[in-house]
């Protein structure tokens, strides 16, 4: 069953990470991505991992909860991993281990696969710390605020943000509705669980159709309700909430600056990811 409370997977707590400004958190996540991609060797990734563990600790979200988000895209990680393992096309310094038809497994492809999967893992973990500690509303607010400069090049930032926040607001409602319709059609004998892909897709029609009809009806109602509350676009509009940066955000900034500096240093000292092969293979 779908469930509204798990949507956006916000995990309520009052931690340092929870209290960071959403704008700062979004920027920190970008900085974190930069660090992950900047790291050229395993020492760099290890440093990022340590940082990640520290962030998880600071967020007071149980580690298992963060790991769960990885489980959801484990398939993707394994899939890209296998592709890399079998079809690595970079330069080879050492004799390949297996060579068959178009498939090649080499020391390099193994290193590459481990490296890439690890990167993917770190990115997913980082993103889920953001979504676990930030409510969807705060996230939209943050994005709106960060995108504000785009207003000068005539991007309708206000409208886009309003659409995002209304979408967020209606997700629980529509999830409830979906559950209700699914249950109602099940009660009329609809079978969503057996059969091939085509049959299952067809079984969704009695759910999707009423859902669309209802979404349109709700949109209609909401339009009336907004107009009745004097909505006429961003013209003459004020804003009630203002995001404020605090010392926490500044402290966070220092942590991230240190992380990136550390990665750069590790890159210089330990070189590229394949250099690790020299230790094992010699030469």
């Amino acid at each position: 069953m779908l469930n509204d409370v798990t949507f956006g997977q916000y995990y309520p707590a009052k931690s340092f990470v929870h209290r960071l400004d959403p704008r700062a958190k979004i920027l920190f996540m970008i900085a974190y991505f930069v660090a992950v991609f900047l790291a050229k060797n395993f020492f760099g990734l290890a440093a990022v991992t340590l940082f990640l563990l520290f962030a998880v600790f600071m967020s007071r979200v149980p580690f298992g909860r963060v790991l769960r988000s990885v489980k959801m895209i484990l398939f993707l990680i394994i899939f890209t991993g296998i592709l890399n393992l079998l079809f690595y096309s970079g330069e080879l310094t050492y004799e390949p281990l297996v060579q068959w038809w178009i498939v090649t497994i080499s020391y390099e492809s193994i290193v590459q696969t481990v490296f890439l999967s690890f990167r993917l893992f770190l990115i997913v973990m980082g993103t889920s710390i953001l979504t676990l500690t930030t409510t969807p509303v705060a996230l939209t607010d943050g994005i709106e605020s960060l995108l504000k400069p785009l207003m000068y090049i005539k991007v309708p930032v206000h409208e886009v943000a309003l659409i995002m926040s209304i979408a967020l607001r209606f997700i629980p409602t529509l999830i409830d509705e979906t559950n209700r319709i699914v249950a109602a059609q099940k009660a009329r004998g609809a079978d969503f669980e057996t059969g091939g892909l085509f049959k299952r897709a067809k079984a969704m029609i009695p759910v999707l159709f009423p859902l669309i009809v209802s979404a349109l009806r709700r949109a209609d109602d909401l339009g009336d309700a907004m107009e009745a509350r004097c909505y006429r676009g961003s013209k003459g509009r004020t804003k009630y909430k203002k995001l404020v940066l605090t010392w926490r955000d500044l402290l966070g900034l220092l942590f991230f600056a240190a992380l990136i500096a550390g990665i750069v240093l590790l890159n210089i000292y330990f070189g590229g990811k394949f250099d690790i092969l020299h230790y094992f293979m010699g030469g």
């Binding site: 249950a183 109602a184 009660a187 009695p206």
Partner: peptide, 16 residues
């Protein structure tokens, strides 16, 4: 389920 019928609240919203 064929012997226990269930009419949900506002069942008209389930017409498809």
């Amino acid at each position: 389920r064929s012997k226990v019928g269930m009419v949900f609240q506002y069942p008209e919203y389930q017409l498809f």
